[in-house]
Nucleic acid binder design. Sequence first.
DNA 1: CAGGCTTCTGAAAACGTTTTCACTGAAAAC
DNA 2: GTTTTCAGTGAAAACGTTTTCAGAAGCCTG
Lengths: 333, 333
Amino acid sequence: MTVGIKDVARAAGVSVATVSRVLGNGPVSEALRKRVEEAVRATGYRPNLSARRLRSQHSQTIGLVVSDIRNPFFTAVGRAVEEEAYRAGMRVILCNSDENPEREQLYLGLMQEERITGLIFAPTRATLERIDGLGLDFPVVLIDRSGPPGLHDSVVLDNAQAAAALVEHLFVRGYRRIGGLFGNTSTTGIERHEGYRGALAARGLPANARFIPPNADAAEEAVMRWLAGPERPDAIMASNSLFLMGVIKAMRRLGLSTPGDLAVAGFDNEPWTELVGPGLTVVEQPVDEIGRAAVSLLFERVETPQRPVRKVVLPGRCVLRGSTAVAAVASAV
Amino acid sequence: MTVGIKDVARAAGVSVATVSRVLGNGPVSEALRKRVEEAVRATGYRPNLSARRLRSQHSQTIGLVVSDIRNPFFTAVGRAVEEEAYRAGMRVILCNSDENPEREQLYLGLMQEERITGLIFAPTRATLERIDGLGLDFPVVLIDRSGPPGLHDSVVLDNAQAAAALVEHLFVRGYRRIGGLFGNTSTTGIERHEGYRGALAARGLPANARFIPPNADAAEEAVMRWLAGPERPDAIMASNSLFLMGVIKAMRRLGLSTPGDLAVAGFDNEPWTELVGPGLTVVEQPVDEIGRAAVSLLFERVETPQRPVRKVVLPGRCVLRGSTAVAAVASAV
DNA sequence: CAGGCTTCTGAAAACGTTTTCACTGAAAAC
DNA sequence: GTTTTCAGTGAAAACGTTTTCAGAAGCCTG
């Protein structure tokens, strides 16, 4: 029924070894190579990857586990990773943990069973903390989230610097009561909070931060209460695009507009941020570069297991838009 | 080095066959089962999926090829597919063709080599046209795009009906020069165009359609020219969310607002559509249901290859927002 | 108690490749 | 002209499982 390497060999009048060598660019005379290639075409042969992987002990596959597939940041990184991996003849298997440590565990197990060459991983905080004790027998490159330099290579945004830049920008534009909204499941939130706090301190301003679960509803609720309460900010920095969305939704419910009633700044330059109100000021992450860097870090690690651990920190780019315009009107009120 | 089933067998003092049976819930006495499970735990054994797949001839894997991974519609469907497949103990391998027929071809080949159980596929028009001659040796369920009933099961939105509903809604709200923006790579565009044209005809209005490549820039350019030209519409229906984005971008460049200067309606209820201007009127697709239906169609086909071809057509849901408010102001001008 | 069922178990074959090994014939080196 | 090298080739082992087959032990039936 399905045609195997044997059938090709028979059709070409050679041994299976020769067919295999043709397929793998091994040493074969030009004449036989022609014959075999012709036979491959004639039979419509397709190699069986399971068999190939089993015998060769190379899965030619890297894993990519992200924490939220609906987050365009991760789909963008995923595309870059796939592109780059493909160029090196590697497949990518993509899994989505949905910020759920149990699912993460499940998928890490799956990766083991697939015998992947290596993993690119955006872990939840829970998993990151015990990642060294997990006994993974493949190299791991952390992306987006990493924490203090540990056993694994990583490539991350310079979160503290980026958050600080946003805060400083808000300060310069005249805002003084700058709130911050941070995720409580990732180290990203922590680092951005640090940059936020530092920048405020440098300007002698008080911090006013909230740590919430990573979804838009939580952000919306938090902002609703915040704006009604005594600590009402005149600007909010949202640590990711879901929160940014939550902020905008809350403002719409309250009938507020930006920047007049509240300045808004956030992370991730998604296409829609340009289209909301006067446009939203955001930090753009170099997604392609992150994906490419992760793949090459991984390959280098595979080739040279003893290489010292490296952490690639990439700068963000501030995209200034109307949501952080000068606070003149707001101050006048 | 890596622990195999043999090591487990030795540790448990049984044969490899018994270990295999324990793993596969075969008939094994309670006593041995205990011993083996203990040995599995002790050794940290992880089955080798390549070997398992090779021997058992079941890949336990379904493929999912989508045309644009950055389109939230596909990521949402993908999540539903994965969820449902996982429940049945199947893995999903996801590939992104980027609307490129060559990449599609490439990935279809890969799917063959992975010996997938079946494929869920959102094809480009080019591939759809010759899909029957491709000699794929696994069942295929088409999603999002399908065309006339052919050899394959499919699950699609009722595109014509949905487009017609939008047009009718615009008509009722007072719009008369209703433009339509359709993709030129998918059958979706064609079907939506048909619904659009039909609804206009029923109301005795002229059609005014543009077919463009499936990206936001093309839409933006088209709209820029359109609004400057002689056939300027007072409402635009965008056949997908990328186009919707392009429409909004063009309007911002021209300093126009919705619905006053131009009413806007589109497809796919993405989170941001709620946040732009007065909110954008869209047709929401039942993404979860689409994913689930595709998976169960596929499983049924696998179980009963002779079953007659089925086409599941799901209704969309109109989400009315401010971008299609009554045209009073516009007409008054 | 003999015979026939079950139920459990292990040895060995099989899955479709790649890789090792040994061999051939021809070319190169002496 | 003999030996050495070498490139090309095929037979067979190996990869880590599942599955088949046959045997052993226990149970029921008559």
